[in-house]
Amino acid sequence: MADFEEIIKIRRSIREYEDKEVEDEKIEKILRAGMQAPGSRLGAEPWEFLIIKNKEVLTKIGEIKPRVTNAPVAILLIANIERAFYKTVWQQDMSAAAENMLLEAVNLGLGGLWNGVAPDEERMGKIADIVGLPKDDNLKPFCIITLGYPAEGWENKFMDKFDESRIHYETY
C-alpha cells in the first residue's frame, strides 16, 4: 500500500490504458473505497455502482463520452435518490465516493478518469438507456470512472498545482 500523502500528490486523470484486464479483486477494493466515502448522513448514502467490461457497451457509451471506449473497465456511479438524505445535494455524496475510488485506483497501481455525466439530463438519459437503467426518476447516472493500467506516457506522477494566490484568510 502506498503512502496516502503520496497517492493524493500523484493522482492524475489517466486517459489511455494498456490492453490488460483489471483484476476483479482490484475492482472490488475500488468499490469498497467508494462505499467508505462520507455521505450527508450515516445510512443515507445514495450510491450504486454498475461495472461495465463489455466492449460493445463501452463503445456505445464512447459515442457520448469518448474516453470510455478504450478502457478495460468502467464503473457507472448511479445515485439512488430514495436513499439520499438531502434530495437536492446528492451530487456531493456521489463526488466523495468517486474521489475515494480514484484514489484507491492509484493505490492499486491503476489509473482512472472521472467522466462527467450529471447534471446534463440528455446525457444522463442516453447513458441510462445504454445500460438498461430502469425508467425511474430516483435513479440518476452521475459519472463514469474508467480504470486500467496506464499506457506508456500516462503514468500517475506528481505535478505541483499549489497556488498561494488562491488562498485567503478571514475575508476575501
Rank of each mutant, 00 (worst) to 15 (best):
P66M: 07
S165P: 03
K65I: 15
L139W: 05
Q92C: 00
P141S: 03
V73Y: 08
L102E: 03
L110I: 07
E16T: 09
K53V: 02
M1T: 14
T171W: 13
R41N: 05
I52M: 04
K126L: 08
R41T: 03
E99P: 00
E28P: 00
E170P: 00
E170K: 15
P150W: 00
E170C: 00
L139I: 09
K53F: 02
L42R: 07
E56L: 11
V117P: 01
Y169V: 10
W114H: 05
R166M: 13
D24G: 07
A71V: 10
R32T: 11
G43A: 10
P66S: 08
W47D: 01
T171L: 11
I75A: 09
L102W: 02
N100G: 06
K20T: 15
R15G: 12
D136I: 07
M1H: 12
I144G: 01
G43C: 09
I10V: 15
D163R: 12
I64E: 13
K126Y: 08
G62A: 10
N138T: 04
L108K: 03
A33I: 09
D136L: 04
A151S: 15
I30L: 07
K60H: 08
G112D: 10
R11I: 00
T146Y: 05
G111Y: 07
K135L: 02
F162N: 12
N80K: 07
W114D: 04
G62M: 09
K9D: 13
D137R: 05
G34Y: 01
F162M: 07
R32H: 11
G153L: 08
A105V: 03
I130F: 03
P141A: 08
T69D: 14
G111F: 07
W90Y: 11
F85A: 15
L42G: 02
A37V: 08
E48H: 12
L113G: 04
I61H: 02
A84T: 05
A79Y: 07
I30T: 09
I10D: 09
H168F: 14
E152V: 12
L58E: 08
E155P: 02
Y86G: 01
P119H: 11
I51V: 15
R123Q: 10
G148Y: 03
P66F: 04
N70Y: 11
A71G: 13
G43E: 10
I78K: 03
I14T: 14
M159L: 13
N156F: 00
G116C: 10
